[in-house]
Design a protein around this nucleic acid. Sequence first.
DNA 1: ATATCTGTTATATATTAACTATAACAAATA
DNA 2: TATTTGTTATAGTTAATATATAACAGATAT
Lengths: 129, 129
Amino acid sequence: MLLKINFSIDKPIYQQVKEQIIEGIASGKLENGESLPSIRQLATDIGINMHTVNKVYAQLKNEGYISIHKRSGVMVNTVNLQSGKKYVEELEEKIKPIIAESICHGLTKERFKEITSALFQHLHPELAS
Amino acid sequence: MLLKINFSIDKPIYQQVKEQIIEGIASGKLENGESLPSIRQLATDIGINMHTVNKVYAQLKNEGYISIHKRSGVMVNTVNLQSGKKYVEELEEKIKPIIAESICHGLTKERFKEITSALFQHLHPELAS
DNA sequence: ATATCTGTTATATATTAACTATAACAAATA
DNA sequence: TATTTGTTATAGTTAATATATAACAGATAT
């Protein structure tokens, strides 16, 4: 999987890497059980520091996206991810200000649902409806 | 309108203030044409520095949520906000990583639409369907 | 007109976040 | 044994965040 970092925009590098890995998992480009590059390898490939990748992996591990073992390396592991109440509340906290912005811009609920549905479909085409 | 700042969480103060004002506009608690407190007044009320509020107001002005005139003060002004292609693309950039997270957590598209619709309804109850 | 309040701008400082640079360690592997 | 792994420690730089004073010009009210 290819990662592209934009050093011009103000979004932190570690966040760009993190989001792209999560999008890779969501889209199926990164399958469950698949190996990820080692910390040093990915850092060299992208052209960033080792600790920036380490920060990403540590967060992904902490949030349940990957598992890490010495020498066996980094591996996609989504078995612990759940859509329980705890996550839904986190999700609501993240989306709430974005929805407020959309309302201020005059977006209807139906238009908003169209846009999000299209993104959902684009990321995960195999899901029906 | 009452603003509540959480100094414990890692979300910047200026962003908390900004989001709450935008949510106020979205929900109708802040109507178009309504006056907002002066920079110094709001800073004193919340217990933060003047420049932090100034930063919020400058951004809100720049993004088209308010208009500012000397002595006449700060005023909600949403007439320039549009849901054109430019904004939709910004919206998609913001929501995309959140949707990716949701997919990884096993959320279905229908469940996602339920959650966002509920938030939409909660912020803007007068909108039908 | 004088005093006051407004947004705006400038300068300075402290704290934290983000990123990088080396280095070292123990565990696992070839 | 040599190498690669994740992990941790230390140190440094740059940028973002927040605060503290200060000053300015425009607008308002007394």
